[in-house]
Design a protein around this nucleic acid. Structure first.
Length: 115
DNA sequence: TCAATGACACTAA
DNA sequence: CTTAGTGCCATTG
């Protein structure tokens, strides 16, 4: 499996995350069959074009992927985009973890199927 | 080659 | 609940 195939698998898997739910980088890696590649999942998302430039059906719901501990570790512009996108679909984003950290309650919004 | 670098995970304390 | 340390592995310089 090369990088392109891996990215494609990651995007497909992310599309399966239900509206209003979230999962983690590590779980996505597990679902595509490469459990130790959580960091590579992040790299795949980094390459995505801005959602604003895409039609609804072409968008990848990347905002539904957060850290395994429920934290949002992004910085600057992307952090704001992720927060807005999540709140827009009804996910509660809480302040915490330092001065500018954000987090989501995985007990409530987490989605971690086995498959 | 080798060392540094991540949109990360896990465990111990 | 939180922080600190270690593991991870493709990519980059």
């Amino acid at each position: 499996m090369d990088a392109a195939e891996f990215h494609a698998s990651v995007y497909e898997t992310i599309r399966r995350i239900p509206y209003g739910r979230v999962t983690s980088y590590g779980h996505i890696a597990k679902l595509v069959g490469m459990p130790r590649h959580s960091r590579f999942v992040g790299q795949a998302l980094k390459l995505l074009p801005a959602s604003e430039d895409l039609e609804e059906e072409d968008r990848i719901p990347w905002q539904r992927v957060i850290g395994s501990n429920g934290s949002i570790a992004l910085k600057g512009e992307n952090k704001l985009r992720q927060r807005r996108a999540l709140e827009a679909e009804g996910v509660e984003v809480l302040e915490g973890r330092g001065l500018d950290g954000l987090r989501v309650d995985l007990k409530t919004y987490g989605w971690f199927p086995d498959e």
